[in-house]
Amino acid sequence: MTEAPPFAMTGGRVRLDGREVLRGIDLTVRAGDVLAVLGPNGAGKSTLIRALLGLLPLSEGRTEIYGRPPARFKDWKRVGYVPQRLPMGGGVPSTVREVVSSGRVARQSRWRPSSAADRAAVDRALAAVGLADRQRESAHLLSGGQQQRVLIARALAGEPDVFVLDEPTAGVDAANQEALADTLGTLVAGGRTVVLVAHELGPMEPLVTRTVHLDHGRILREESPLTPRSAA
């Protein structure tokens, strides 16, 4: 049996405040892809992945997650979304571990307390991003690169099949970019599907199997680099 692809958008258009931000996107993300969405600021990269996840409605066209429109998609534990940053909100602090543990929510019953399996998954996620020794610290007091790793760990803790990362390297120094690329390499080696938005790929470049160049809400070109999964 062949399964529907993780994401499939046909003729996708998105309008934000009266302006057309995506103008007719056809894009299928297949299982095992490591897809990078590239393009200048304002090209619509973040809008595209938010639309793929159903966080923004399409004004035209359709999009599906594993064969179902987002509104009728139920199996959210297969999807791990890593946003650009950890919002401050009203300033109530949360520890690194609390943030990472919340990634388990799609796998938990609200009527049961966290299980040993939940805690083990959180431990693994913290270890994978190298933050196990800082799990009791306040997540908001970490550096930008470390916060980014906290957010990746949150998605990792949910053990999804597909990761969607919005600008994971934005504002992250070189050392932390290497650390991020290492973490991504582990995911890719495990056969996970990855969709990421980036300004430039940097140390993540060897991992990427497909790139999509976006400009003014359209796909300019698609490329498949010759050295897929070289780090795997």
Binding site: G54, K77, S102
Partner: peptide, 22 residues
């Protein structure tokens, strides 16, 4: 007690809460 975990994620980031199926 019952909805605490979900409310925590909701108050952290509404988009992530939605993309977790909450």
């Amino acid at each position: 007690a019952v909805f605490g975990r979900e409310l925590f994620l909701l108050s952290q980031d509404e988009d992530v809460a939605r993309a977790s199926g909450l």
